[in-house]
Design a binder for these strands. Structure first.
Lengths: 363, 363
DNA sequence: CAGACTCCCGGAAACGTTTACAGCTAAGGG
DNA sequence: CCCTTAGCTGTAAACGTTTCCGGGAGTCTG
């Protein structure tokens, strides 16, 4: 009974040893057959039979330890309830799936410790690579990104010198597109409902708004600026506060969720959209087309950014020694009923699911 | 140079061997210090210093192989763009996080092969457990669920005899709630926009609708039933087809995305909601409260189902020998502006984010 | 019929970690 | 002063898989 190794672990699950012993072959042969490489017909038969009998299923962890890859890729975003991330995820998924890998998503809830923890945990070989879209970036965070054991691609703004693959857009310019459009249609008291200023996109959009007004020689009225979360409820509350103290003829919103909240606040306050107040959202998500009236929105190319990030990641996985790269996706504006010439209800035959990629001004 | 093992793998990443060699101690001591158990002050100092110098980060895969756990839990849903799954995910996340684990989400896109592949891959030890919410269930699928190597909890209907932990609701009854409500408010030509009949929820809701009408002695008019996908665009298209051939005074929709599509189709066709046509959605997601008019919706307790599923999973991870259990969450109806007495716009002070758990009839 | 070549097989190492075990030293108690 | 005990350390096994390598058997070629 001097068995060198237990055939049946306490767990009860069969291993390749179990199968090999039962088939009367070595574990090397068993492994080969199970992986479909080599083996005489007789051996193949015996191993297959043994595997089926004991219900063998390989332990992926052990396999990964050996092969140094897991076939998994992770995406970490702040809020999975935000449709912009859903679109991004779909684009990433398509690319990742084509490489035979599977995509896993983690919602960090904006808690930065959570994101760092995820990085430290997942990136330590549980996944072959990772796409991260942080909205707040600390120094600690940045180093975790830079010397991650697995390839990482960041979607969003990052310090110019960070040695990480990076896909960004120009949301300052995005805000400018919105302001230009509203000014061109005669609006002058343009309000801005933003997300938190201590976030990267919040800060960029704030700067973009101020710069755009200055460019049009419109004096800045701080009463017209309000800040909340990047979410529906916060957008609505912020708009209510704004309406309580001043009277805009247009609202730029830092994303579509906020814009929907603004829409509600406006309608509840008896304002007509777009006659009294024009509304422009941002991200151009499906939600914008689901609203009534349909929302104008600045597209930041989230699907495109996702697609490119995924491609960068796959390339880096294939060759980890590539130099860090950076790509930029330009914003564009989609004008719909909530701003501009008050359009009637959308035509019945018009399936609003087809994405109007660049039906608007693009510069 | 008869080193038994390379200190620096080709990869270049330091291992515990690297650290131990540099600190001049054995790998056992290094491992102990790095895990914070034991070690003399001097050893601790040396190992810590060595680890910091080489930038050691432990390989989680190797650790998992040894410890037989990963600290990860996965959730597989069909469509992450559906807010009902977002709510479910948030509830699960809260429970899972409290056990020190992290949640990963995978969107299967309803492709059943994808889901089975995920099961076979992830469940083979990449995660400590898994929550799955399948909308289509095949025999193959079911066996993959039943003899998964890691604990699995299913959210949704499952064959009565399946030996899997299972949290379900009664969506037949949910549809009945909607129909009862509409009949009570005088509607008689009640339409039904459903999802695919070859899905579990689609079939259950279809049966529920027919049974409810029968119970009220309302003859069934097949023209009033239309089927699409469980998505916005499909819901809108299906409603357009329905409106092209008949004239309902109410619509029950199989989920909120479909209901939003229906709303658009109705408004585009010049129907007033709820005066001409009352609309009731299903799942009672945030989306229902984001619409204008706000949507009545049947809550299927998705957050509660998620919470319970997560608890079942944690219990099973703790003790894999528990007998399979089944829990049921009752549906309830939330009446809002899109049906019932046409309410005015919601009051400005009313933050619609607070979930009206059971503001409606519950039976 | 000898040699070369192909194919299949089993032993053992390797992936990077944790941990059981035994040996050692130093301290403390009788 | 001896014995026990506690604390620390290193060796080696283990987790479950893949894969390198050498040996043996069979086939083909000249």
């Amino acid at each position: 009974m001097g068995r060198k190794r237990l055939q049946e672990p306490a767990d009860g699950r069969p291993t390749v040893h179990t199968v090999a012993a039962r088939a009367g072959v070595s574990i090397a042969s068993a492994s080969r057959v199970l992986n479909g490489i080599g083996g005489s017909p007789e051996t193949v038969r015996k191993v297959r039979a043994a595997a089926a009998e004991v219900g063998y299923v390989p332990n992926a962890i052990a396999r990964s330890l050996q092969s140094q890859r897991t076939g998994l890729v992770a995406l970490a975003v702040e809020d999975i309830g935000n449709p912009v991330y859903v679109e991004m995820m779909r684009a990433i998924e398509a690319v990742v799936a084509s490489s035979g890998r599977q995509l896993l998503v983690h919602a960090t809830g904006g808690r930065i410790d959570n994101e760092t923890a995820l990085l430290r945990r997942l990136a330590n070989r549980y996944v072959d690579g990772m796409i991260v879209s942080p909205i707040r970036v600390t120094a600690d965070h940045l180093t975790a990104l830079v010397d991650s054991p697995v390839p990482v691609v960041v979607v969003g703004q990052l310090g110019a010198d960070a040695a990480v693959d990076n896909v960004r857009t120009d949301s300052r310019h995005g805000v400018a597109l919105a302001v230009d459009h509203l000014v061109a249609s005669g609006r002058r008291r343009i309000g801005f409902v933003n997300g938190p200023l201590d976030t990267v996109p919040g800060a960029a959009r704030d700067a973009g708004f101020r710069a755009a007004l200055a460019r049009h020689d419109i004096p800045l009225d701080e009463d017209l600026i309000e800040v909340g979360d990047f979410q529906y409820a916060a957008g609505r509350a912020a708009t209510e506060r704004l309406l309580a103290r001043t009277d805009p003829d247009a609202l730029v919103c830092a994303n579509d969720l906020i814009a929907v909240g603004a829409l509600h606040a406006l309608l509840a306050a008896g304002r007509r959209v777009p006659q009294d107040v024009a509304v422009v959202g941002m991200d151009d998500t499906e939600l914008a087309r689901m609203m009534f009236p349909q929302l104008s929105s600045v597209s930041l190319g989230s699907a495109e950014r996702g697609r490119r990030a995924a491609e960068l990641l796959l390339q880096r996985i294939a060759d980890p020694n590539l130099p860090p790269r950076r790509e930029q996706v330009p914003p564009s504006l989609a004008v719909r009923a909530s701003s501009g010439a008050a359009l009637p209800a959308p035509r019945p035959g018009d399936p609003p699911t087809t994405h109007p990629t660049s039906e608007g001004v693009t510069s």
